[in-house]
Design a binder for these strands. Structure first.
Length: 97
DNA sequence: TAAGTGACGCGTG
DNA sequence: GCACGCGCCACTT
């Protein structure tokens, strides 16, 4: 993984306000050439205790991406006030920016 | 070296 | 809304 892009990705994730979410694709567009998949790859490789609000990253339609930590992600979002609908989706109103 | 594999996005039907 | 195909690109086999 390109080190510069990885740094940009993590920096952007760190800026997402509590109680808001953003998407892989939006983060990718804010970087200098990363793709949505690369954003996912960067988050996947994060070690435990990194402190980044990785749970605030969802897919373009507000769904929690299918990954090993999805359950934990849903709980963390709920705990910080992000409500999920009956189908486990975040309303577009929560999207940041 | 080639082929498979994703924490995705988007256009089509 | 759902299923498919394709682009994306670093990493693994």
């Amino acid at each position: 993984m390109n080190q510069l892009l990885r740094e940009q990705i993590l920096t952007i994730v760190a800026r997402v306000p509590k109680g808001r979410v953003t998407s892989y694709g939006r983060i990718a567009k804010m970087t200098d050439g990363a793709s949505a998949r690369m954003v996912g790859a960067a988050l996947r490789s994060l070690p435990d205790g990194h402190g980044l609000p990785w749970q605030r990253v969802v897919d373009a339609s507000g769904r929690i991406a299918d990954h090993p930590g999805a359950d934990r992600q849903r709980r963390l979002l709920r705990d910080e006030g992000v409500l999920l609908d009956s189908r486990g989706r975040v309303s577009v109103d929560y999207f940041w920016p």
